[in-house]
């Protein structure tokens, strides 16, 4: 028997566990409803308004669905994987002729991959229905906005995965994840005030490494978003790419730690 079949077996088991009827259907409904209901075309009256409108649209379109997406991932990773670790189901999965990292990949593909596929599928379709003109004209802006938003989400997921593996308890990991989510939502405001108070852009730049939406927001919304006429940080397009890439490197590093821990130090 090749390795593909056991991998698919675990993937199917995980799918069954993560998306019992009608969980997937409820989330798909919420994604679609949130996407269309929240879409907004309001743009600030700035020079780069056309490109900013694409950024603004994607932001409004993905606001609520991203939160729904996060809940789904939290449920799948913390509750799903946590429960497997807590109840010893993971030992059964280890009996399959697969390496441990392959088992984790199958679980994560189900937990994150399917939810991501559904999220992006609905979002892109909605963009084509609502504003085909914008998505065609400003495809780069659309792509970068999604990449930045998802990077924050993957960062949170990576941390949550680490919590779940360390604690081996889903409930505790979920609580830790929720606290982290709210902390990450509030920190940008504090950091921004601190940056303006000190006149230094360094705190903003540090935060942008894990949250590239900050750099994208400043790049696309420009003057309309700035507090003062004398701006402390006006990022260039190169900086946008730089911070976006670094955020994904951070995400990749967190997942790498999780994989190494799962492979060598799980203690099961």
């Amino acid at each position: 028997m090749g390795k593909g079949k056991p991998f698919l077996e675990i993937f199917t088991l995980a799918l069954n566990e993560d998306y019992r009827f009608p969980i997937l259907e409820i989330f798909a409904f919420l994604y679609a409803l949130g996407t269309f209901a929240m879409a907004s075309f309001g743009t600030p009256g700035v020079a780069a308004a056309e490109e900013a409108s694409a950024y603004y649209l994607v932001n409004s379109l993905s606001g609520l669905p991203l939160f729904v997406f996060l809940i789904l991932i939290f449920k799948n990773v913390a509750y799903g994987l946590g429960k497997d670790l807590e109840q010893g189901v993971i030992q059964t999965l280890f009996s399959y002729p697969l390496k441990r990292w392959q088992v984790l990949t199958a679980k994560l593909l189900s937990a994150i991959g399917v939810a991501l596929l559904l999220f992006l599928g609905i979002q892109i379709s909605a963009l084509f229905i609502l504003a085909p003109g914008i998505i065609k004209a400003y495809f780069t802006a659309v792509l970068l906005t999604y990449a930045a938003q998802l990077s924050v989400l993957f960062f949170l997921t990576g941390i949550l995965l680490l919590f779940t593996l360390f604690l081996k308890r889903g409930g505790l990991a979920i609580v830790a994840g929720i606290i982290l989510y709210f902390a990450l939502s509030m920190i940008p405001t504090f950091v921004m005030f601190y940056a303006y108070a000190t006149g230094s852009s360094l705190p903003l730049k540090i935060l942008a490494v894990i949250n590239p939406t900050i750099v994208l927001q400043r790049y696309y919304l420009g003057e309309a978003f700035f507090f003062f006429p004398e701006e402390i940080w006006v990022p260039s397009f190169f900086e946008v790419l730089l911070y976006l890439s670094s955020s994904y490197i951070v995400v990749a590093f967190i997942f790498l730690i999780a994989y190494i821990y799962f492979e060598r130090r799980l203690g099961i």
Partner: peptide
Amino acid sequence: TVLLAISLALALV
């Protein structure tokens, strides 16, 4: 069923 759920949301909208 997922497609039906999405179409239900779209119909509502």
